[in-house]
Amino acid sequence: MLHTINKSPFVHKNLESCLRFAKKGDPIMLYEDGVYTVAAGSKIEPMVAEALKKHPIYAIEADVKARGITKVIDGVYLCDYYCFVALVEQHKVYPWF
C-alpha cells in the first residue's frame, strides 16, 4: 500500500499515524505541505531517518522547489507526478489527510 501525506509534520500528526499503520516496505509519498517533512536540518529529521529504515520515501519535487526547500534529507527520492502514477500502478493508495 502506498501512503500519501500532504500536511506539514510540524502541525499535524499524519506522519505518526501513517508510520503506526504502515507495513514495513510500504512506500510513502509526500506532496503539498507534506514535503516539509523531508527538509534537512529540522527537529523531525531523526523521525524521518528512522522511517527511512522501513519505508522508501518519495517527495514531489515541484512541491519541494515551490517551497524553497534546497536541502533534502539523504535517502529521500525526489520525483515527479509520473513517478507518483508509477507508484499507484503498483500499490493501492491511502491518503493520510
Binding site: 500500500m1 503506526r20 499503520f21 504502515a22 507495513k23 493501492k92 493508495v93 491511502y94 491518503p95 493520510w96 489527510f97
Partner: peptide, 17 residues
C-alpha cells in the same frame, strides 16, 4: 490493534478517507 487494521486495509480494493 493497529497491525490488525493495517492488515484489513491491505485487503481492500478501495479505501475512502
Amino acid at each position: 490493534e493497529a497491525s490488525e487494521i493495517a492488515k484489513m486495509m491491505e485487503e481492500q480494493q478501495v479505501l475512502l478517507p
